[in-house]
C-alpha cells in the first residue's frame, strides 16, 4: 500500500460535509421557493415545513461556514508568484498541455472560491436572517430579499463548479473528502510546495 499523507483533519472533513450538505439542501429548497417546485415541498411535508427546514439549515450552514475559517482562511489569504502563473494557465483546465506551476495545499482557484463562498455565505446568511426576523421593516425586508437572491445566484454558479472540479474533473479528489488522506506520491506531484512545507520531501 502506498504511503498516505493526511490532507484534511477529521473535524475538517466532517465540517466540510456539513457545509456541503446544508448548502446543497439550501439551494434545492431555495429553488423550490423561487420556482414553486411543489414536488420538493411535498418531500419535506409542505412549504411551511420547508421554510422551517430552510431557515434552520441556514443556521447550520453559517455556523459551519464560520467554523471552516479555522481550516481554510489562512491559506486562502496567501498568494505567491506561482499562484499568479496558475491563473495565467487557467489551472491547466483548458488544456492538459500547459505547464501548471507548483502548488501548495490549495491552488488559488480553490482559495478564491473559498473567499467567495465565505463572503457570500455571510451575506446570504445575514440577508436570510433579515427576511426571517425583520418582517415588519419594509426596507430591510426588500434589501434582504434582493441580496439573498443575488448571493443565491453566486452560489448556484460557484458551487456546481466546485463540485465538478472536486469530482469528475479531478478523479481521485473525491476520495480525499472521504478519508482526508491522499497518496504521498500524488501529493508530491500536485502539492509540491505543501509537501515541502510539511517536510516530507
Amino acid at each position: 500500500m502506498a504511503e498516505m499523507i493526511r490532507k484534511s483533519s477529521v473535524d475538517e472533513i466532517v465540517n466540510h460535509w456539513i457545509l456541503a450538505g446544508s448548502c446543497i439542501l439550501l439551494m434545492i429548497t431555495g429553488y423550490a421557493f423561487l420556482f414553486h417546485v411543489e414536488s420538493i415541498g411535498s418531500v419535506l411535508g409542505g412549504f411551511n415545513t420547508m421554510k422551517t427546514v430552510h431557515n434552520w439549515l441556514g443556521v447550520v450552514f453559517v455556523l459551519s461556514l464560520l467554523y471552516s475559517m479555522r481550516h481554510y482562511l489562512r491559506d486562502a489569504l496567501e498568494y505567491d508568484a506561482d499562484d499568479k502563473q496558475w491563473f495565467k494557465v487557467a489551472g491547466g483546465y483548458l488544456s492538459h498541455k500547459v505547464k501548471v506551476p507548483p502548488m501548495g495545499k490549495y491552488n488559488p482557484g480553490q482559495k478564491l472560491y473559498y473567499l467567495v463562498i465565505l463572503v457570500f455565505g455571510i451575506v446570504i446568511a445575514i440577508s436570510g436572517f433579515g427576511i426571517w426576523f425583520m418582517k415588519d421593516n419594509m426596507t430591510v425586508m426588500l434589501i434582504s430579499h434582493l441580496v439573498h437572491n443575488i448571493a443565491f445566484c453566486v452560489f448556484v454558479i460557484a458551487v456546481p463548479v466546485h463540485i465538478y472540479l472536486g469530482t469528475l474533473a479531478n478523479p481521485g479528489t473525491f476520495k480525499i473528502m472521504v478519508s482526508g488522506t491522499m497518496p504521498l506520491s500524488e501529493a508530491k506531484k500536485k502539492h509540491p510546495k505543501w509537501i515541502k512545507s510539511v517536510g516530507k520531501v
Binding site: F47, M50, K51, K135, M138, M141, L142, H145
Partner: peptide
Amino acid sequence: ISCKLCVN
C-alpha cells in the same frame, strides 16, 4: 408560510 414578503 408566513414570510410576509407579500406585505412588502
